[in-house]
Simulated assay, not measured.
Amino acid sequence: MSASMQRLEEVLGEPDRVVVPPPWDRSAAETGIVLPQDYRAFVDRYGSVRICNDLLVWSPSIQFDPHGFEKFVRASRFAEEDILLAYEDKEEDIPFEVHPAPGGLLAWANNSKGDYCFWHMVGEDPEAWPVVVWIQDDFKWDVVDATTTEFLADVITGSYGLANDILTRIQGAPLWKHEGDWTGRF
């Protein structure tokens, strides 16, 4: 287990159930994309989760679609639509393109306010992809040189500068809850 995954597990605690992990070897075959290892380790341990009843960390799933990895990648199109709607006639101000554009963004989390977390798919090594955060209300983009699990731990602990923008802490809400796994079960 990586140090960042261990730190995140210390923050989140033990999962309350065993999840069915995705068959990661199918990802490259279905989409041509190998997702970052620390993200895969997180999903293998926790599945898809909602943090503080707000930030949803996505996970590939075959619920409603037998092509779970393709569905996961296609979900970035919803993020792209939200970005285009927000920028209306100012598309030239959008600093990134979304996958399938070469070096584009691939979404992996969002919150109730329409903010998104992406990987910036620059280079061949998914372990080197930075996290990109888009805060919709402020048209704010932030590139974070961190792995997925480092970033999530920093958001949850509040050490990431925009943590309060992307994570609304609801009084009495659980720190996290299971939202699904490869099979889609909750």
Rank of each mutant, 00 (worst) to 15 (best):
I51A: 05
F64N: 15
S4I: 03
F64Y: 13
A128E: 11
V133R: 07
I33F: 14
D165H: 14
V122C: 08
T31S: 11
D65S: 11
T148W: 00
D16P: 03
D137N: 14
T149F: 07
I135K: 09
Y87T: 14
R7D: 15
Y116S: 12
G104S: 04
N53I: 06
Q63G: 06
T183D: 05
I33H: 11
D38Q: 07
E80M: 02
E30V: 10
L106Y: 09
D54T: 06
V143K: 04
P22E: 06
K71T: 15
K71R: 15
L8T: 04
H99V: 01
E124D: 15
L84R: 11
K71C: 14
V122L: 12
F151Y: 05
R169C: 08
P22N: 09
A79Y: 01
D154S: 15
S112A: 13
M1W: 11
A41T: 12
P95D: 10
E80G: 13
L55S: 05
R169G: 06
E70R: 12
F72M: 09
L35G: 06
I166K: 01
F96D: 04
F118C: 02
P130R: 10
D16E: 14
E179M: 14
R169L: 08
V133L: 13
I51Y: 05
I156R: 00
F151L: 03
P102S: 15
E179S: 13
Y39S: 03
D93N: 02
V11F: 06
D142G: 04
V19F: 10
A3P: 01
A107F: 03
D93H: 02
V131G: 08
D93M: 10
R185N: 13
V18M: 12
D38Y: 03
E70H: 06
Y46K: 10
V144C: 01
N53K: 08
P130F: 10
F118W: 04
I156M: 05
R26D: 15
L85E: 14
E124Y: 07
D115S: 12
G172N: 06
P102L: 14
F96V: 08
F96R: 00
R185M: 12
F69A: 08
V49I: 15
P60E: 10
G123F: 06
P66K: 09
L105I: 04
L106A: 02
V144P: 00
T31W: 12
I62W: 01
A153E: 04
E97L: 08
P22A: 15
W108N: 05
K90W: 07
A107N: 07
V18R: 10
E10N: 12
W134Q: 00
P102T: 15
V49A: 06
S2K: 11
W58D: 06
N53F: 13
S48W: 00
R17N: 06
